[in-house]
Every structure is written in C-alpha cells, then in structure tokens.
C-alpha cells in the first residue's frame, strides 16, 4: 500500500504539459498599461479638440433648406382684451374682491430677414384677475 508521500511524489512526476504554441504566441509580449495621461487626459483633450473643430465648422456651413431656423424680426406685437366677465365675488383682507375671467388676443407680425416673408401669429389666452370691489 502506497503512502501519501509516495503518491504525491508520483503526482509531481507528472509534469504539466507545455503551453500550446498558439497560446505562447498570444502571450509573447507583456501587457503594458498606458500612462495615466494617455488614458485620461488624452481622450479629454481629443474630445475638447473635436468640440472646438465642430464649433468652427458649423457657423461656416450654408443653411440647409428646412434645416435651421431663419432669423426673424418682430414688426408688430399687441394684445387685445376681447372678453371680460365677473365670475365670482370673494372676501379677503377685510374687503370684497371680484374674480374676473378675461380673454385676450395676442398678435405678432414677424418678417423673415432673408426672404422678406411675413408671418402673422395669433393666439388667445385666458386669465383670472382679482379686482377690489369699489364702494361708493
């Protein structure tokens, strides 16, 4: 009967197989970690340079049709009250207040600087307005 030491000795006689040739080729050179500035600073510098180049190129590019907004000039702008109704009277701060529902019409007339096209914008909006009730 063999003892443990003898078996261990027999096992050690089994030498592990050499590295396969293809693996040895893969492991031919040691891995090298690049310097910190190359890993961190260089990409940051490259990114900043890319942003700078893009910022230089973009203004010099001709506008594409429908791509960017044309500069416009506002020729006329006005708001008109078109309706006003008292919808409630409330008490507050020792006096009565009217709550008024007002409807406004906002109008803008704009002109495109490059093509002289005029555009009119209209929109309605509602506002709740508080107004003290006058006592006579």
């Amino acid at each position: 009967m063999k003892d443990d030491l003898e078996i261990e000795s027999m096992l050690r006689d089994l030498r592990p197989q050499q590295l396969p040739a293809d693996l040895r080729t893969r492991m031919k050179e040691p891995p090298v970690r690049t310097d910190r500035w190359k890993r961190v600073v260089a990409p940051a510098v490259l990114a900043a340079a890319a942003v700078w180049v893009v910022s230089l190129i973009l203004p010099s590019m001709p506008p594409r049709a429908g791509g960017t907004l044309e500069p416009v000039t506002i020729l006329q702008q006005q708001s008109s009250l078109i309706d006003s109704r008292v919808i409630a009277v409330i008490q507050g701060d020792g006096q009565a207040w009217e709550v008024m529902d007002q409807e406004w019409l906002d109008e803008e007339l704009a002109i495109c600087s490059s093509s002289s096209v005029q555009v009119r914008f209209t929109a309605t909006r509602r506002e709740l307005v508080y107004q003290p009730v006058p006592y006579y």
Binding site: R15, P16, L19, E29, P30, V32
Partner: peptide, 23 residues
C-alpha cells in the same frame, strides 16, 4: 492595452517558470 517589448524578459521568465502550472 498595447503590447510592446519593455519588461518582456521578466514576463517571459515568469511565463516559463509558472505558465504550465497556471495553464
């Protein structure tokens, strides 16, 4: 990672000594 020659002798010696066991 990039692979280049500096330190290759230590790497090679280490691989020769222990590579088979690790594999």
């Amino acid at each position: 990672l990039s692979f280049s020659s500096p330190g290759s002798s230590r790497w090679k010696a280490w691989l020769d000594a222990h590579g088979e066991m690790f594999f």
